[in-house]
Nucleic acid binder design. Structure first.
Lengths: 136, 136
DNA sequence: AATAAATTTAGACTAATTCTAAACTACTAG
DNA sequence: CTAGTAGTTTAGAATTAGTCTAAATTTATT
């Protein structure tokens, strides 16, 4: 009897290069830029190209495996996709830190009511001074 | 008797081109990009250059007269500086709308506690579907 | 009027990202 | 296996947003 046709899952299309990009992001505590990811991925897969890093990032975003963060100045940064969370940015050293505000369900409702949008997500950005910079 | 020396205020340095840029931003309900501002400013001041638009935007930002919004895709957008407010972005048509969440003092405290940052500001971004797109 | 200081201009430059077209790989049917 | 085709990767060109530079212009100061 023939094996049942399996529903393809996003992992099925994880090529070597997409895998490499994903590994880089998962291995890091910080939020690397596309360029940093490219540099790191080349260590494992020396022929990978810049365009492929971008293609892979798009693929991984769409598959919900990584998350793109765009702010302020310069390049996008990428996050391994964990739970919903918020970001704090240090006005002095530029450091970007994750945190999570628990009451987001209510926040989302309140924001939806005020904006008249149907809310899909809410995200909070705090700007301020990080603990390290406060110490100095 | 000589007139007292006046403390210079930011308006003192409002040159013709900075004024023109500011007028464009104030006259619009939406959130134009630098390029849109450039196009519009040229109608009043045909010799204004692209670089001057950027210089003026920097000046006006520093003077607290306009506010820069950077998200998602593409170019920065500019807002006339009103009160603190939040932004909703439509996932379907890309429209960007202002709204204000009242309880931001508490939010800022909560976020500061969670992130361990000294908070200077918080900003909420809602993604979802705008009323127009819901209607269709 | 002469000098200095600040601002504007046009265009060159840079950085981030996307596009393009050719080469490569994997899968599908005969 | 073998041709066909669909999807992916590659390198480099192209595009976009924004900054930089140096000369020209304007404004303010003596």
């Amino acid at each position: 009897m023939a094996r049942a046709v399996e529903t393809p899952r996003s992992e099925d299309k994880l090529t070597r290069q997409r895998e490499a990009v994903l590994q880089v992001i998962r291995a890091r505590e910080d939020h690397p830029t596309a360029n940093e990811i490219f540099q790191a991925a080349r260590l494992n897969l020396p022929t990978i190209s810049y365009a492929t890093v971008y293609n892979s990032l798009r693929f991984l975003k769409e598959a919900g495996l990584v998350h793109e963060i765009k702010f302020g100045d310069g390049a996008s940064r990428y996050d391994r996709e964990t739970d919903r969370h918020d970001h704090a940015i240090c006005n002095e050293c530029g450091k970007l830190v994750d945190f999570d505000l628990p009451q987001t369900a209510e926040l989302m409702q309140a924001a939806a009511r005020k904006s008249k949008f149907k809310a899909a997500s809410v995200h909070l950005t705090l700007k301020g001074v990080c603990p390290d910079c406060r110490a100095t």
